[in-house]
Design a protein around this nucleic acid. Sequence first.
DNA 1: ATTTTCTTTTAAAGTTTCTGTAAAGTTATA
DNA 2: TATAACTTTACAGAAACTTTAAAAGAAAAT
Lengths: 227, 227
Amino acid sequence: MNEIDTILIVDDEIQIRRLLEITLSANGFNVIHSMCGKDGLVDAATHNPSLIILDLGLPDIDGQEILKRLREWYTRPIIILSVRNSEEDIITALDNGANDYITKPFRSGELLARIRVAKRYSEINQNEPICEFGNLSVDMLNHVARKGDEILKLTSTEFALLSLFVKNSGRVLTHKFILRQVWGFGYVEQTQYLRVFVAQLRKKIEKNPSKPELLITESGIGYRFGE
Amino acid sequence: MNEIDTILIVDDEIQIRRLLEITLSANGFNVIHSMCGKDGLVDAATHNPSLIILDLGLPDIDGQEILKRLREWYTRPIIILSVRNSEEDIITALDNGANDYITKPFRSGELLARIRVAKRYSEINQNEPICEFGNLSVDMLNHVARKGDEILKLTSTEFALLSLFVKNSGRVLTHKFILRQVWGFGYVEQTQYLRVFVAQLRKKIEKNPSKPELLITESGIGYRFGE
DNA sequence: ATTTTCTTTTAAAGTTTCTGTAAAGTTATA
DNA sequence: TATAACTTTACAGAAACTTTAAAAGAAAAT
């Protein structure tokens, strides 16, 4: 618990940033600021913070868009802190991968408690923008997958599927879990999609697609990637 | 693939329970109700729901107390739904192990989205330990069993059986108990299944399957794993 | 000690469920 | 409109589960 946790704040209001800075640093966090969406994306990638607090009303790019782009590779907690109070915004943000949604004005004690909750449930998630496995590498940030030196030509669904497998290598992922992560919660029964895309992915990453060595079937449960 | 998620509602207000019932069952959940804290604790234990929605203002026991007692064993999501709006209540509940805190009156779309969030993160992070015995290890979280370094290729039934044995190593487990745990209540008389699967498991984990050293027969009673 | 009875092991056949694959149909995208 | 990506269908083959049956082993009775 001695390493300093870094929190990235993406918000254009200086007062909010100051208030957060005081609250968070008083609680042992190291704080980084970004004043717009673009900076936020860059700072997240360069500092790899252990948590991000994101405002939705940014001057350049919409916060929901930032959230989506972050979630392409960033697996640690993201807490939305916004004046927007519409149910639609909240649902969209949560389904886009936010861990929590707090409306301004906020209470700092509650914010800290919600940060603790978010960190509690994401401790396992290691977060590397580039994951490697064998001669495969997946660069979440630049959205590029390689086999050796050769760049794999993957569709976005295939890429999402491969990232999920690489991020969770060695773990058995259930059909439902994969479907929810890649396609969304409404698709958990569409096991057939998964079969089709697993077959396509195997064609592109396995030496011998009919005798898979990387993407292993766990019959009746799901799939496991790698060792 | 058609298994229904069960949600337990612990709330004394009938209107709230009705509203939740409608919202949740319309979204494919199976709903159980408890009207007081005592019933809540019992129902949680008997039904083992996949999520609990808990009110703080219960007639008998205080909700924070229920929360603490549930968290002694219940690892899946608990969402607090309460009229209490004080920061102290919120912080206490979140630190007592609640996954989220929603104040009444609530918006059902937001509630559903927050349920999705809670389920998303609890599935990954079931902090169940890795059980080991000799050179065997069973990793419940990743659903992987190993003998030394080699990954054992087990069917899901074999895996469930082995987990049960490893978790209860040294204890004599009766046929009925094992059948109930692995196959379910309706199978307690199917001793033959057990014999067949024990034989299969021995082939995969014993040095000499016909002279088992790990998975010992207790004639007329059941089996014992390890010493 | 031997026989009888009950229990367990094991193989193998029968049945069901799950998975891989190709190909056709549909939708999105440039 | 042409192209790529995604969705859906259909079916064969594989894997898992259930059932049967015979042989081996243990316990009880004589």
